[in-house]
Design a protein around this nucleic acid. Structure first.
Lengths: 243, 243
DNA sequence: GTCTATATCCTGATAGAC
DNA sequence: GTCTATCAGGATATAGAC
């Protein structure tokens, strides 16, 4: 049969409200208008159909060009993907290094600003972030490793924020690794379902998730059902139980 | 240049500790041993390289067969994917419909069991779940719609658990939709990073996330920094602010 | 820089022997 | 049911005119 996989064409994607995001604002200023248009088209295609299901024709025609034109601006399809993934991770990292976080007064305010901003960033750029998070297998090993380093630096910022609060007594002695993973999951997983025309603006969702993050590092009083299991699972009992 | 995309071959994937999971236990009993072996091979390939980057040769040779043998057991590559995605969603749904949840005494215990089980299921089957969550764009429109219905039923179970607790006063009047999305994000996003040979067993992680879920529906007392912003963002102020 | 045309390789699926 | 061999189409990337 070999019938063509049902996909969304660049025309389908044009103007789809689910794909509205702020990715055009991400691209490097040193790139020309045409190159940035190609990246924006590629983000839509990759996010909707996946990197491998997207052809270089899809990307080019989505930007109003013929298929060969792409290679004037990028040396390969993989480097189009890498540019999107790299810039997304760099921008997200830069956003949580912003001054409003470093100058926050206490550990709680600092963590609140961090989670709020990281969440809002992913909401605002949810389409590009979908590519940056879910299409990593399309990268070469070398490019994947560069991205891994950027991710690590972001994670370290969250770790420092939680560990710092534990150290100065603002938070109880939580399991930092587990709590940080949970916070990152909240901020990142929203890219699976978020829409800019939904009921929450990026900032509203950021505030909401920042509140949930602070609950993760609160003392375990007054929680329904808490009396049943004793104190919260703060420190991981990493003694190998039967698996 | 047209150089071949660097991918993991079925031989690379064989025995990779990151890909250890319990997916072989998912497949339909009515399928033969060979068909189930093909599904297990396909899960590894799809999870590592993505659906479109995986060739039917990869799947077959990963199961110790030649490329044409696949078509004796499945009519197309897309139906291999659909079988994996469908079964995964059905099993996850069945698991949270288990009796230990329905017979739980109060809303808090019920929610705890629900989140704990849903989390543990995704940890135990994290490789198959990765395919079920991240490779949906490979499905035909019809098959995608079937999956969407299964997801909806699962979401309704979570909604009922939270809304029920709010109704009988066990939980404060939280924003059910936002809280449920956050809980699902915790349980699902772990498939991006979870490993069975990591420090947490599926059950340990389930207990931890169940505790975090209960904190999401607790009264907003004794949280660090809570005094700054007044009461928690319980009910969404969905009045359209400037976007 | 953009186009049309095309080279080269690879993929999903099938044919037919055993 | 599994194999080898192969078809038909589609992919990335390039060549060369304008």
């Amino acid at each position: 049969m070999a019938k063509r996989q049902a996909r969304f064409t660049p025309q389908d994607l044009e103007g789809d409200p689910r794909l509205r995001d702020e990715s055009p604002s991400l691209w490097d200023d040193r790139l020309g208008d045409v190159a940035r248009g190609l990246l924006t088209s590629a983000v839509r295609c990759f996010a909707s159909n996946g990197y491998h299901a997207t052809t270089t024709r899809d990307i080019s025609t989505g930007a109003g060009l013929s298929s060969a034109a792409l290679y004037v601006h990028f040396p390969s399809k993989e480097l189009v993907l890498f540019e999107i993934v790299r810039v997304s991770h760099e921008r997200a990292l830069g956003y949580v290094q912003g001054s409003s976080i470093d100058t926050a007064r206490g550990a709680a305010e600092r963590l609140r600003a961090l989670v709020s901003r990281y969440t809002a960033w992913h909401a605002l750029h949810h389409v590009a972030a979908r590519v940056a998070q879910y299409e990593l297998s399309g990268l070469t090993a070398e490019h994947y490793d560069e991205v891994r380093q950027l991710r690590h630096r972001t994670n370290q910022i969250f770790r420092a924020a939680v560990a710092g609060g534990v150290k100065d007594g603002a938070f109880p002695p939580v399991d930092v690794d587990r709590v940080v993973r949970a916070m990152l999951s909240l901020s990142i997983d929203l890219i699976r379902w978020y829409r800019l025309d939904g009921s929450d603006s990026p900032e509203q969702l950021g505030d909401f998730y920042a509140d949930l993050a602070l609950r993760m590092v609160s003392s375990p009083e007054s929680r329904p059902g808490a009396e049943r299991r004793g104190t919260a699972p703060q420190l991981s009992s990493a003694i190998a139980t039967t698996r």
